[in-house]
Amino acid sequence: MPELLEVRSLHVDVEGKRVLRGVDLTLRQGEIHAVMGPNGSGKSTLAYTIAGRPGYEVVEGDILLEGESIVDLEPEERALKGVFLGFQEPPPLPGVRLSSLVVAAVNKRMGVESLSRAADPKVFGRLVAALQRVGLTAEYAQRELHVGFSGGEKKRVEVAQALVLDPKVVILDEPDSGLDIDGVRVVASIIRDLRESGKGVLLITHYARLLQYVKPDRVTVLVDGRVAARGGPELAEEIERKGYGAVAGQAPAGTA
């Protein structure tokens, strides 16, 4: 059986500059894979490239979802196949209510042409439940998405969308930045639930703080666009104690 998500020898250029220089990584169902690394190491580039962001040019390597290459697919095609990205800095969308986006996104997944009329009457209930799960009131469903949101609100709303849209792969880019400690606990418990329900979670994080609350099954450390180290949860603990300098250059050869 093919892996859920497989990144093979990925080299990526952004604005003519090489940012990823050969990244290999595997994500299995029901697994949390943490991608760590200092600023500028290519973590967000990896997330955007998997999601297919225009301008992130794959010059070498491949990305496979359940054994099929997705590198040539449009971002929306990848999304509909089950790739979800929770943004680190989601852009404000003036006038677009969270509920409007969720209705449109769920309708697309059901193959319904209209974007504005909920094809599934339960979608509003599911959205409200997801909002409550991330510690927000139902009122946020009617808010303009990410307009005037605090850092913490943005993160909670991103995670809430992952719950409603039911993807296979959940990529969360720094889901804990801007969150207070209660928020970190809530997000961590949702990540554990996502793993429990069989999803693969690619957890991108600079600090190990979040990893105190959610133990990753695997850890990959990126430095300067390359895999600098791989390991289990103990690697995250080591980074927290000693910093990235201590683990860089330990990358074992062989499987990701």
Binding site: E76, L85, L93, G95
Partner: peptide, 28 residues
């Protein structure tokens, strides 16, 4: 913005659908 379009495409909308949602937002 390109970032707005990509965000909506990442949720499963085509570029055109993303545009129409943003235009409706403009009129909301």
């Amino acid at each position: 913005g390109e970032d707005q379009l990509f965000y909506l495409q990442q949720r499963g909308l085509t570029e055109q659908e993303a545009t129409s949602l943003l235009v409706m937002g403009f009129l909301e």
